[in-house]
Each structure stands twice: as structure tokens, then as C-alpha cells.
Design a protein around this nucleic acid. Structure first.
Lengths: 227, 227
DNA sequence: GATTAAAGTGTAAAACGAACACTATGTCAA
DNA sequence: TTGACATAGTGTTCGTTTTACACTTTAATC
């Protein structure tokens, strides 16, 4: 059913930069395009915004349709509106960035292939998706140093070493173990569990979980989780 | 000339939160709407994005058309996409925030009335423009403490007291004079001019200007202007 | 030349950040 | 069972930064 307007309108899409962490390097989830333009190229998961859904809803829907991911941390990033960013016609894209925990493996993909890539070793991407990804990476680095969002990339139970490795991977620099632990524990937002994490012939590590309730309380008072 | 698409499309607009500073309180520039919906209500300057212009261009164009402002600091803020934010039809709005210097007084307004309001004493606004304004204010507060954007709200030549008053107005708290001056000067981004600012029966104040060239150099190295 | 009112300046104490090396513990293999 | 292995876990010192705080200077005006 066609729809007619007095003036030409841009098409509106959402694109999601999905970050994951495998314990070593920061990863981004890409899908292989099945259709032209840029057929067979890697691209960010995303698609058209329906006229009766919010932008957030569209991002979540596309993410689930194309990668099977649900209930992930999702935040609006930036809106990309260059005139020629899509060769077919004017397309404005609202970009989101998502953080997913290792458990949430890519399973139910819609049709196209979905794959994790190290952000340090990305393939060439369709459209202006490199720009979007770069913007997301800058944002993630910035946010990580003043908001406790790293936990969104770790399993619910994690060790302090895992947390440190994550920070090191995202920030791209080694951190001092003692200083990191002191700082991470100083906010009293990590709850030590009764369990330990055993992983080879060496001392097992204390497991922690993040306390989101306490964080919400602190956040309202303008709290910063600085590492 | 009508334009037809296979699926319905949202209309795309830009809205600008324009901040100014009169020496006392932080101000926002609003225009009175001449047309329905929300006729005669105050609203943010903004309008439809043309299909052949970028979002930034649209924001600059609308700003000039509706308020006469040109060459202002302008940065994308957030994209608002609630389904019912415009009672007529689906409208997605890319919000911008602008900082203008006192000199750039509102003159050549398109037709509608434009007026400065203290952000602490705003009228009721059209659409979801309060949300947009609140988001902009939060962003401005955040940015001010780690980027030297305050200068965009002051005349090219300013005194340290004027700068401090601006910070106090935006952050909403008094700052210590000596500590503020020490910090502001410590980055070596303020150039003392040969002129003084005389303003009543008391010691005249040293005038400074901001050094944008030096700042650009520092910014590339990941510099933070923290106050 | 006395008054006015804002400009301009330094220091001490406390908090914070950075640098740095050894002990503890469970597993595994000999 | 015992010793080797490999990661977990822990404190202190030193330099820097932040905070708190009060008096002197200066030009204009009366």
C-alpha cells in the first residue's frame, strides 16, 4: 500500500553496534548482508524504523531479528545523516550501542550470517558503518571510565581479574592490579559471593556480582564510577 | 509535487536548544509558535529536514531562519522518537544544542517572536520540548566540567570573574575564587590581554581571551579541561 | 584624599593517585 | 604426599591535587 507525502522524506533506520568481550579482546557483532547494496559485505545489524514504533523499540526488534539477542544494555549513540550515506536514497540512521554478556550467544539469527570480530581486526564495512563503529568505541571508552557499564559485558558472576582484563581491553592499556582492585571495591558496588572461580592449577578467585540497586541509588546523587 | 513510498515514513525534524548567558542566569532561546498545533505556545526553534541537506545543515538553517543566529557552537544532542510526540503524525526530531555569545543578539527573526528565558523560569513548552531542554541542560552541565565550551557563552574578551559566574550559573553552585582561577589558568589556554575591564568604582579586571588553536592541539592528545 | 567595591593573590592540611613486590592457595603431576 | 605451577590477593610510600580559607590592591567616584 503506497503512502504519499507533499515533500520527499528520508527513510529512517536504526543500526546497532553490539559489543562483547571474550576475556581477551573487545568484540563487535556484525552481520553479512544478503541484499544489495553492499551485498555480502559485513554491516551493523539494523533496519527500517516502523512508523508506529519508537526508535528504541526498532533497535531492539532489529537486534533480535538479526542476531537473536534480547534484553541487552542498549543506548542511543548518535544520528547519522549524511546525504549520500546510502547509495539508493536518503537514509538517516539512528545508531545505538549495545553491550552483551558472554552468555547471550548468537543463536537464532534471522537468516543472514552473524559473527563476532575483534574491534582491532575488523573487515571492511558497508555504508558509513565504520564511522558508526568508531563513534561507538569512543563512547564506550569514555563511558567506561565514569559509569559502571563494564558489568554489562561480563557474566553475572565475575572475578576482579576478569573485570580488570575488560577495562584493559577497552581502554587499550594495562592497569595496576592493586590500584584497580582498590578503586573497583571502593564504591561498595561489588558484592562478594560465597563462591570461588576455579580455573586451573592455582589459587581460585573470589566471585563478585554487581549491585545494580545500590548503583541506582547512588546515580541519583550524581555519583561517578571512575576507574 | 507529491512523493510516494511503499511504506509510511516518519517526518524528520531538527530542534535546537539555544543557550545564552546574560552574566547572571543561564538563558534559553524560545520562539512563539505561529501555527497549530500548539499555536501561540513557546517552543524550541526548529523545523523539517530537507531531503537533500544534512542534519547539521538543517539545524543551522532553521536556527538562522527563526532566530537570525549564525556561526554558533552547535552540536547534536539526542534524537527523540516517541510515537505520539507530535499530535498530527509521526515526527522524529533530531535535537541539537547551541551556545551563543551575548553579542549575537536575536535580531532578524523570521516572523515569529523569539525570546530569552531563564532556564530556572521557563514557560510551558510545545510538544516534548521540555524533555529536550532538560536533556540539553544535563548535557551542558556534564560537558562544561570537562570541555572548555564555556567560552562559547561569553564575549571574546572576558574576565575571570565573568567566567566563574558562568560556571556557577550552569552548575548551580558557588565556586571558590582562588581555586577557580588557579584551575582555569593552569591549562594555559587563557591569554591575558593588554586591556582591562572597567566597571564601576573599583579595581578594573584583567581581560582574557580563549586560545582555540592551542586547545585543538591539546584536544588531540585526549586532554580534559576539568574545573 | 577618603570611600567604595571588586580584583587579585598564597598556604597549609587532607585526600587522592601512582608506583611498586611479595605471600597465599588450590590443582596437578610426579 | 609433596613440590611445582600459576593466578589470587594484599599495603605502604611518595608525590600531586584538591580543598579551605582572608587579606591586600587598585581605579573610580564623591
Amino acid at each position: 500500500m503506497p503512502h504519499t507525502y507533499e515533500y520527499p522524506r528520508a527513510a529512517l533506520t536504526v543500526d546497532c553496534v553490539v559489543f562483547g568481550f571474550d576475556g581477551g579482546e573487545l568484540q563487535a557483532l556484525l552481520i553479512r548482508r544478503g541484499l544489495a547494496p553492499f551485498k555480502d559485505k559485513w554491516a551493523l545489524p539494523g533496519g527500517f524504523v516502523r512508523v508506529e514504533e519508537t526508535l528504541d523499540d526498532a533497535a531492539r526488534r532489529e537486534l533480535e531479528e538479526e542476531t537473536g539477542l534480547r534484553e541487552v544494555f542498549l543506548e542511543q549513540l548518535y544520528t547519522f545523516g549524511s546525504v549520500k550515506r546510502d547509495p539508493r536514497e536518503r537514509v538517516v540512521s539512528v545508531a545505538y550501542f549495545a553491550l552483551v554478556k558472554p552468555g547471550a550467544v548468537t543463536a537464532a539469527t534471522d537468516a543472514a550470517e552473524a559473527k563476532w570480530f575483534s574491534v582491532s581486526d575488523l573487515p571492511s564495512l558497508a555504508f558509513d558503518h565504520v564511522d558508526i563503529l568508531t563513534t561507538a568505541l569512543t563512547r564506550l571508552r569514555g563511558k567506561l571510565t565514569y559509569q559502571p557499564i563494564g558489568f554489562e559485558l561480563l557474566p553475572p558472576k565475575f572475578t576482579l581479574t576478569q573485570l580488570q582484563r575488560l577495562y584493559e581491553a577497552v581502554l587499550g592499556e594495562p592497569l595496576d592490579k592493586r590500584n584497580f582492585r582498590k578503586k573497583a571495591l571502593s564504591y561498595d558496588l561489588l558484592i562478594a559471593l560465597k563462591e570461588k572461580h576455579q580455573d586451573g592449577p592455582h589459587r581460585p578467585a573470589q566471585l563478585f556480582r554487581f549491585d545494580p540497586v545500590k548503583y541506582e541509588r547512588l546515580k541519583k546523587k550524581g555519583f561517578l564510577f571512575e576507574i
